[in-house]
Measured scan of single mutants.
Amino acid sequence: MDSLVVLVLCLSCLLLLSLWRQSSGRGKLPPGPTPLPVIGNILQIGIKDISKSLTNLSKVYGPVFTLYFGLKPIVVLHGYEAVKEALIDLGEEFSGRGIFPLAERANRGFGIVFSNGKKWKEIRRFSLMTLRNFGMGKRSIEDRVQEEARCLVEELRKTKASPCDPTFILGCAPCNVICSIIFHKRFDYKDQQFLNLMEKLNENIKILSSPWIQICNNFSPIIDYFPGTHNKLLKNVAFMKSYILEKVKEHQESMDMNNPQDFIDCFLMKMEKEKHNQPSEFTIESLENTAVDLFGAGTETTSTTLRYALLLLLKHPEVTAKVQEEIERVIGRNRSPCMQDRSHMPYTDAVVHEVQRYIDLLPTSLPHAVTCDIKFRNYLIPKGTTILISLTSVLHDNKEFPNPEMFDPHHFLDEGGNFKKSKYFMPFSAGKRICVGEALAGMELFLFLTSILQNFNLKSLVDPKNLDTTPVVNGFASVPPFYQLCFIPV
């Protein structure tokens, strides 16, 4: 009986604490739906499609509103004006990374994606500088992407125009580009180590996009005490870190300090320079996690976009025909596509942009946080508050993009057929937390897609009208449904 009384008292205290925290903070924060004790607004949000729920709530509470995930307040920004004001106009104040408990377990605050403060700034600055020195957006990395595009075309030829699921092959190409940047090595598509790495990356994007992960991140005790797919994700990350550590040891034994070959060499050189400046942010643990982040951000996002792009091109054969006509006119058949071609191919450029806009790969991006107490639109948001960005509300804005739910390359073309930029184009987020590999991803999408369409016609196994382009999961990332196609050599 005594234990029951204690339990009831504990629960009562928890409920009172929950109510007090919510009521004391709500006077400062933007308005929002009334949260339930302990669980907050979790029942009012469709976990399978958070973005749709945010759109519905914005119609009631406006472009800036507050939700509670458990006891934790989260300020939501919906629509271009609110997102721009926060991420661009007040970029420094909104540059923090929001709480992501599962990532905390995986990387302990290291790396480039989930770190904060001085650690994040130094690692991000170093990573950007190193990638630029190796030619991100310049010639040397373009050579690597072109080489991988040629290998991709050869792998597709091996399908002999038979029906195939493109998931694996389209994942190999961007993964190999990242391998060449980090390890100075590309792998054969049949290499077992490479296959294991690909498998872990593919599993992780599916797990991260599941409703279960949303629950884990908002009720963090689940991570330590409950079984579930989150444990598989943590094991996959541990596998990748151990693999990278092996490569780091190989580099330490063979590195030429006067001739760095890749990202690992550059990081080890930085560690050597910083060894007298303790404590340094440049450690082996930081290198492991930064490399894992580059793999995660640079492989599955690009391969998922490529997979979605081919599905949309199957669905819209008239678009595919126009792209192939432009390829034939500008590039021809006797040389590989290059980035200089893009400025002469406005329709193809528009298609690449429209694919990214339409699929809305990361509907709410990753959570941000404010780095200080900030007054925002007459609300006071306390330091450390998590900020949720609705990228969907920007990419699918119906004023900027008429009929935003329709796939239409003319969203990025003017009346004369010239490519038209849009400030609403934010597939990689915006501001200080914009994806480090934005330029690389854009290069890969253009070169891989043009190389495929230069060499193959795409054949659907069903009537294009019957192809479903609805994402199968739409949590962290929008993942396309399973499909097969035939690559018919031109």
Rank of each mutant, 00 (worst) to 15 (best):
K322S: 11
N418Q: 11
T305P: 02
F94R: 02
M136K: 15
S365G: 13
F263N: 02
A173F: 02
P409R: 01
L67V: 14
F456E: 00
N455D: 06
T348W: 04
T304S: 10
K235C: 06
I327W: 01
N217Y: 09
S336M: 11
C13V: 14
G437L: 15
H316I: 02
K375Q: 14
E122A: 13
C172A: 14
V330L: 04
L388T: 03
M271S: 09
T364W: 15
V153G: 01
L14V: 10
K119S: 13
R377Y: 06
F110I: 15
L313G: 02
I434D: 15
L156Y: 01
A369R: 15
Y243D: 02
F134A: 14
R132F: 09
F183T: 07
E85I: 03
T386D: 05
K121P: 12
F267N: 05
L54I: 13
V38A: 08
V177E: 00
V319K: 03
F401Y: 15
S209V: 05
G431N: 06
P63K: 08
D468V: 13
T167D: 05
Q146S: 11
S254P: 05
M255I: 08
K383C: 08
K432T: 14
E288V: 14
R132A: 09
L67I: 11
S209K: 13
S3L: 15
I381G: 00
E288D: 04
E328R: 13
I374Q: 06
A441K: 03
E122N: 12
L287V: 03
I327H: 00
F428I: 06
R307A: 04
G296N: 15
F168V: 11
G117K: 06
T301Y: 13
I123P: 07
P367R: 04
Q484N: 10
S3Q: 05
I434A: 15
L11C: 13
R125K: 15
S429V: 04
V8S: 10
R124Q: 09
Y358H: 08
L314H: 01
D341G: 00
S95G: 12
F487A: 02
S51C: 10
I223E: 03
G79L: 00
P427I: 03
P174N: 09
L29S: 03
M339S: 10
G27T: 09
D49F: 01
K275G: 12
G135W: 12
K249W: 10
L208K: 10
T130A: 13
L361D: 08
G111E: 05
I141Q: 04
A477S: 13
T386G: 10
K160T: 06
W212T: 03
P404D: 04
H184K: 15
N41E: 01
H276T: 08
W212Q: 03
S127V: 14
F428H: 05
S343R: 10
L485P: 01
I215G: 03
P37R: 01
L67D: 01
I39P: 01
V472A: 09
C338F: 07
K206F: 08
N258M: 10
L413N: 01
N218H: 12
R124N: 07
L131E: 04
F412H: 03
F282L: 13
N218Y: 13
T290M: 12
E328V: 14
D49N: 12
N218D: 10
C10W: 10
A149C: 09
K421A: 12
L294W: 04
K72A: 04
V292W: 12
K232E: 06
V330P: 00
N259P: 11
N176A: 01
H230M: 12
N176H: 03
N289W: 11
T34E: 14
L195P: 01
E199G: 10
P427W: 06
T167S: 15
E148Y: 00
P481A: 10
E285G: 12
L170N: 00
S115N: 14
F446S: 01
I181S: 02
V394G: 11
R26T: 08
Q252E: 13
I74T: 10
L306P: 00
T305I: 05
S280P: 10
G296I: 13
K383A: 11
R342I: 10
E122H: 12
S254D: 11
N204F: 06
M345E: 00
V237A: 07
L312S: 02
I47A: 11
Q44A: 09
E400I: 06
E415D: 14
S242Y: 09
R21H: 12
Q252G: 07
L17R: 07
Q44V: 11
F69D: 04
K121M: 11
P404Q: 04
V60G: 07
S23Y: 15
R132H: 08
W20V: 08
K420R: 15
I244R: 01
L152H: 00
K72T: 08
N133G: 14
L268W: 05
L461P: 13
Y347M: 03
S280V: 11
L391A: 14
K28E: 10
P221S: 11
N218S: 14
F456P: 01
G32R: 01
F187C: 07
H344V: 07
F407P: 00
V292G: 06
T301N: 11
I222A: 11
L449N: 00
P471C: 10
S58P: 03
R307F: 01
P279S: 14
E274G: 11
N231P: 05
D191I: 00
N41S: 06
H276K: 11
F428T: 03
W120R: 05
S280M: 09
G332L: 03
I374V: 13
P37Q: 02
G109Q: 13
L36M: 10
D414G: 06
R26I: 13
N403G: 07
V319H: 12
K241T: 05
T130R: 12
E354H: 01
T385L: 04
L467F: 04
L440H: 00
V490F: 10
L445R: 01
L195F: 06
L102S: 10
V83G: 02
L90W: 15
G27W: 12
H316P: 00
R342N: 04
G32E: 00
Y189D: 01
L380R: 14
N231L: 07
E415A: 15
Q193A: 13
R329S: 12
L87T: 07
E281Q: 08
I99P: 09
T386V: 11
F412K: 00
I223V: 12
T302P: 15
S365T: 10
K423L: 10
L11M: 12
K59S: 12
K232C: 11
